[in-house]
Nucleic acid binder design. Structure first.
Lengths: 230, 230
DNA sequence: GTTACACTGTCGTCAATTTGACAATCTTTA
DNA sequence: TAAAGATTGTCAAATTGACGACAGTGTAAC
């Protein structure tokens, strides 16, 4: 992957695309490539943060382990996604675990370089504040829209979130296929595999989704969205 | 309430207390007092934002209405709490409904004055970015710690959150008594009044909390925290 | 004080969900 | 290709929690 391809990733992110080209090139110049093998950990919750990441290729699982030792997956992040910015702004530890679910290539902009960018260009602040606000709004939505929903509603909501990307609320790269096991889905909505299996097959019979081995395909997004109301 | 009392509220908030005194006095000078009667609405989700608020006296219910028309309460805010800052930074509508649960006096710093403060003092930006990061972290915690918990665990977590103040994570004003009906608590964890009643009385018998009319008192915070693990 | 209202305590019933078990199917690895 | 491992489909039993009902108790208003 050469610099022009990396430049593309900056220009096609709805937060970073407004940075002037010379700033982007400056960031790329100090960035490091990080390659993770399948299953390898990028960072754990509580780790001190070394930088902000962009996924060049691969799939990162964002999760944390609750007190019973059960892993709760927040979301998966894929190509072109930037993440890990919160620790850049408050210098506090990582909020979640991050694992590579397949061999992944990441670009890391070191924390100091990123912070220097802001220090040298305080007019970028409002821009990144909006970015943080968007994160808060997405997170509030997750809470609000989950609370009060039936299990079927939560499941529908979660499938849509996984398809659209929790952390890419502004981008419109609506994936239709989601590679996820029913057990993982169950974890995410705090339910059991068997119940999720039953509900998914109900949705399958209504031709709203297509259920496959380790895979869910959205057929009728409108119907799925309608289910998020129950 | 005179200006020196209002000044006190600025100086005792862990975000605003670092502002220089002349800035605080400037903000107070342009602020407006807003009085709400019991039950009156301050703003609805989706309303455009007029400013950032501080509760001088009273109690504000932050909630929103889900698609079935059921109100989901996020939290209650009380004396000395600042809220509504997100719309100041991204110029987008309110994220929640806000109602006065009793007659309330609010101080409003108008949006334009607040934004001018930042424009004139870009060195305040990092400060407010940290504030936003704290909000995100608190919200992530809410999601992470709720997911995977039993109903009893969620109840314990919620009681602690109400005692410590969801929106005051940095302050250490640990209230021990919470004025809330069992029905409201049930709404907050998406459960039924009857179940909450049963669970609360179980906790009461174990001397972890004391249950009263419209009131819960925390007796054994350690035990309560331990329950958030199940 | 007394009347109205809000909140709590406690039933039983019923529906939804978990759990454990086991077989079948798909994918990966050797 | 064969074996191992992961994932799915399905059952029945046990559990959990929602819901309606109703009585009792605390609080506020007049």
């Amino acid at each position: 992957m050469d610099n022009s391809e990396i430049e593309y990733l900056f220009k096609h992110n709805n937060w970073l695309d407004q940075l002037p080209l010379h700033v982007i090139q400056g960031l790329i110049a100090v960035s490091k490539l990080k390659v993770l093998n399948k299953g390898q950990i990028l960072h754990a919750k509580g780790d001190s943060a070394d930088g902000i990441y962009c996924i060049l290729k691969g799939k990162i699982r964002v999760s944390n382990v609750n007190s019973q030792g059960k892993e709760m997956v927040l979301t998966w992040l894929e190509n072109g996604t930037w993440f890990g910015e919160i620790s850049m702004f408050d210098d506090l530890p990582r909020t979640h675990d991050a694992h590579a679910d397949e061999k992944s290539h990441l670009l890391m902009v070191p924390k100091l370089a990123f912070q220097k960018l802001l220090q040298d260009n305080p007019h970028f602040y409002p821009f990144f504040m909006r970015m943080l606000c968007q994160r808060i709004r997405v997170t509030f939505n997750l809470i609000d829209e989950t609370g009060g929903l039936s299990l079927l509603g939560q499941l529908a909501r979660r499938i849509i979130l996984l398809a659209n990307g929790l952390h890419n609320a502004g981008q419109h790269q609506k994936t239709k296929q989601i590679g996820i096991s029913q057990e993982s889905l169950a974890h995410m909505i705090n339910s059991s595999r068997q119940t999720v299996n039953k509900l998914l097959n109900q949705l399958g019979q209504k031709n709203i989704i297509k259920v496959d081995y380790g895979m869910i395909e959205i057929i009728d997004m409108q119907e799925l969205e309608a289910l998020c109301e129950i």
